[in-house]
Each structure stands twice: as C-alpha cells, then as structure tokens.
Amino acid sequence: MATLIRLAESFFTEMGRFAMMLWRVLMWTPRPPYDWRQLFQQMQRVGVQSIPVVALTALFTGMVMALQSYRVLVRFSAEGYVGSLVGVSMVRELACVLGALMVAGRCGSAMGAELGTMRVTEQIDALEVLATDPIHYLVVPRVWATALMLPLLIAMADAVGIYGGYVVAVLMMGANPVTYASNSFQFMELNDLTSGLIKAAVFGLLIAVIGCQKGFYTRGGAAGVGRSTTQAVVLGSIAVLIADFFLTKVLF
C-alpha cells in the first residue's frame, strides 16, 4: 500500500513537472528574439542525424513483420495479404512507436545530459546573468525541433519499413513483386498515415519536454547528470508508450 502511494505520488510529481515545463515553453515560444540558428541546429541534430538509426530500425521491423506474418497467414492461405498487414502495421503503429523510442534514446538522453552538464557547470546561471532566459534560449528550440522533425523521420521510416517487407517477401518468400506492391496499399487509408504522423509529433513533444526538464533541473554534479540522462530516457520512453495507447484510442 505504502509503495502504491509512493508510486502514485511520483507519477503526479512527474506530471506536474512536465506540465510546468510545457507551460513555460508555450509562454516563451511567441516572444522575440526568434533564434532560428538554434532551431535549425537542433533540427539538424534531432532530425538529420537520427536518419540512420530510425531507418535501420524501420527496415528490420518491416523485414521481421513480413517474416512473421507470412508464417501465420500461410496457415490459412492468406499469404497474399502479407503486404497489406506489413503496410498498415508499420504506418499506424510500429514506425512511429519504435522510431520515437529510438529518438528518446538518442536525443532525449542527449538533452538530459547536455542541459544537465550546463546546469552543474553554472552555464545555465551564466545565461540568466547575461540577460537571457535559459528556457527561451535552450528549451524552446529543442522542443519544437523535435516535434517538427519526428513526423518527418517517421514518414521516412514508414517508407523504409514497407520496402523492407517487400524485399523479404519478394526475395525470400517468392511473392510476386507486382501483387505484393499493390496489396501493400490496397487496404491503406489516408487516416492510417496521418494518425501515425500526428502521434509522432506528440511523441516528439513529450520526449523533448521530458529530456529538457530532467536536464534543466539537474542537481549534484556528475552523478546528477547521470541520473538526469537515465530519467530522460526512461520517462521519455514510458511517456511514449502510455501516450500511444490513449492517442490510438482517440485517433481511430
């Protein structure tokens, strides 16, 4: 019982911290000066530099999906629908969730560590002393860069994943390339695609706000930075998974 109360308490503490940080980001976003250089730099880091990791994840997920669904579908002679199954599952669910988890590991942790180090070396205090709001300067560009770039990354991941399924089905299972390709998109609706991309944008927001929040309020030297980095990844990933359930329920 006591553990349960403590668990609930820490859950609501984290929710509160998240809400406070999100609120401050929203308050500062419309205020000049607009720091485009910082925004583009972060978009480059979160978006462009995550391409290999996210593409690799999507490629193998698509390939495994094709293998698995073929083994099952062949039992009731429905192997012709492997393409449809891979396509829809990638676009609706797998690309955005697995992609977001990779980005949480790659960028959420980086934000926790970078801002955490800036905190413990007094660089964040220095920003304030130099008449610059650290939320405005550091957090706002990171949050919007991630929320903008994650949907683009996921759109790419969708394509790569479907291609991965195609390669496995055609080369290893001997599926007909033309039927497989047409099957892939036969049952796909526009809603499948957009819901996945909307989810990706929300995941991006979650990952960046949590990562920055953890880094920003780091205490206690190098050990504190380590703790922030871990928490940024763990909480970011959990937030993605929980949000995924509720978003899926609302969007479909």
Partner: peptide
C-alpha cells in the same frame, strides 16, 4: 541584470 557582470567560479563558459 545588464547592469551586472558576473564571473563564475570555473568560468561557466558555453562549451
């Protein structure tokens, strides 16, 4: 704060 200049213990340079 523009009236102030503060030098931090270890410099606190933006690395």
């Amino acid at each position: 704060r523009r009236r102030f200049g503060m030098a931090f213990q270890e410099g606190a340079l933006f690395d």
